[in-house]
């Protein structure tokens, strides 16, 4: 049987009593670097925009090239085909998402606060460009078996962060990494439902639901439910 230990530092307890969580980003990183290949960047922008709005199946390489203003040969020099291009771009988006989430999660703060910050960074990333979010989460499913490995790597990274919650348990060995994997799968599924339904850019109230699912196995039902009452601070404008 698991019991949680006392987990809120006093300052955080006071903050939550006011109904606010510290979700401010901890790191102001530089904007994501370009690939130093303007044609690659144009293809990337066109591909993400077209697939994110029309779908993977309905998007032809020719249309991507036309939108990007490049020749088909320019595309072929860089990518083995549509699937290869999709996976390369997916990897690039994943790297940027991980960079932001890692930056938000880093630091000496309590695990609870770091998860809030990481969740904030992830949700902000998805909300700032819903078409890219669709490309990244929904259209991945249309690409085939290799794409699932991409998604699974992201989920494993999420499980890494959640697994830090074991330290919140009275006996950290009473849960294994499996618990974090279940929570990661649940959170990803909840996000995917929102993105698929076109609701990802609506409001911040979704974040407490994700945090609830993250805290549930480690802090217990009651404490996790308290997360649902937290009103997140206003989302910062622009990229973080």
């Amino acid at each position: 049987m698991r019991r949680r230990r006392g987990w809120l530092p006093e300052a955080e307890g006071q903050r939550r009593a006011r109904g606010q969580a510290d979700v401010s980003p901890r790191h102001e990183g530089p904007p994501p670097g370009s690939s130093r290949d303007p044609a690659h960047d144009r293809i990337a922008a066109a591909m993400v925009q077209l697939i994110g709005s029309r779908g993977y199946e309905a998007t032809a390489i020719e249309t991507v090239c036309e939108r990007a203003g490049v020749e088909r040969a320019d595309f072929d020099r860089r990518f083995a085909g549509k699937e290869d291009c999709f996976l390369v771009l997916h990897e690039e988006i994943a790297a940027e998402l991980c960079r932001r989430v890692n930056a938000a999660y880093a630091g000496p703060a309590a695990w609870h606060n770091r998860i809030w910050a990481a969740g904030w960074a992830a949700l902000n990333f998805l909300q700032e460009d819903p078409v890219r979010a669709r490309f990244f989460i929904v259209e991945l499913n249309g690409v085939g078996g290799g794409a699932q490995a991409h998604r699974d790597r992201i989920l494993q990274r999420l499980a890494d962060l959640l697994d830090g919650g074991r330290e919140q348990l009275e006996d950290p060995n009473s849960a294994s990494r499996c618990t974090a994997e279940i929570a990661a799968g649940s959170i990803y599924g909840a996000i995917a439902t929102k993105v698929r339904g076109g609701w990802i850019d609506r409001g911040e109230h979704f974040l407490p639901e994700l945090i609830y699912m993250a805290m549930l196995p480690y802090l217990g039902a009651r404490a996790a439910e308290d997360e649902l009452l937290v009103q997140p601070l206003q989302r910062p404008q622009g990229r973080v």
Binding site: I182, G185, G189, A190, T193, M213, E225
Partner: peptide, 24 residues
């Protein structure tokens, strides 16, 4: 009444993903 509407589907997805990893 506080619980998220999508909790059950999300939970099912998490459980299945755990097993999916083992299957893969």
């Amino acid at each position: 009444s506080r619980l998220p509407d999508g909790l059950e589907v999300a939970l099912a997805g998490g459980l299945v993903w755990l097993i999916q990893q083992r299957l893969v």
